[in-house]
């Protein structure tokens, strides 16, 4: 199991966000992308998810370009972005149950934790029946992260997962990542603030650009 980015160039409109970029995640590995605002962290994650195609270069999942087998790639990854995909009109449990049901590709192959267990893991157990419109920003983020628990997928793409999380939430997230990696999962995360994972490989985006403009 591996995810490799080779010589990636990403363009948004006429602007080149980054160019000649490589990364390499092995089984159980984690890569943390850091960089200033606008350095292309989100673009990198959207490339890795296959939402966006690189202008140059390719991304390989287990040796095959994701452009050749998008179906397999997109059904075996989790993307947690800035937006939490939470419907305010539905209850907390209904929100999670929906994503858990539709994102779990082959239900029945492995036992998945119940929605209640996943909410409990994220410290939302007491809020299960509450309409999601009453959640705080941090609680919405916890609900988004609960998708990672409720539906098991080998690749996690996390865009600023620590945003609006409190200290306890951060600890839970780090636990989740450690547990995911111990069972062979891969993580690519874009992070701004502290993210206490000792053996993470850090890659920096936008160094040359920052130099050029400063």
């Amino acid at each position: 199991m591996s995810l490799i980015g080779l010589n990636l160039t990403c363009a948004r409109g006429d602007t080149i966000v980054f160019t000649g970029f490589d990364f390499d995640i092995a089984r159980g590995g984690i890569v943390v992308a850091r960089g200033a605002n606008g350095s292309g962290k989100t673009s990198l994650l959207r490339l890795a998810a296959g939402y966006l195609a690189p202008s140059v270069g390719e991304i390989r999942r287990d040796g095959t370009s994701i452009a050749d087998d998008p179906e397999r790639h997109r059904t075996s990854l989790h993307y947690v972005g800035h937006l939490d995909a939470v419907k305010p009109a539905l209850s907390v449990a209904e929100n999670l149950a929906f994503w858990s049901d539709v994102l779990t590709a082959n239900a029945g192959t492995s036992p998945r934790p119940s929605v209640g267990q996943a909410l409990d893991r994220m410290g939302l157990a007491g809020l299960a029946d509450m309409p999601a419109r009453y959640l705080s920003a941090g609680q919405r983020r916890r609900l988004a992260l609960a998708r990672l628990v409720a539906s098991s997928r080998p690749l996690w793409l996390l865009d600023e997962p620590t945003a609006s999380l409190d200290a306890a939430g951060m600890e839970t997230l780090i636990d989740l990542v450690a547990h995911h990696r111990s069972s062979g999962g891969m993580v690519l995360a874009a992070v701004h603030g502290p993210f206490a994972i000792d053996d993470a490989v850090t890659i920096r985006l936008g160094e040359s650009r920052a130099d050029g403009t400063s």
Partner: peptide, 14 residues
């Protein structure tokens, strides 16, 4: 699109 559900719907096995 606005609440991020579209990103998730693009990842379902359908």
């Amino acid at each position: 699109l606005e609440d991020g559900s579209l990103d998730q719907l693009a990842l379902v096995p359908l």
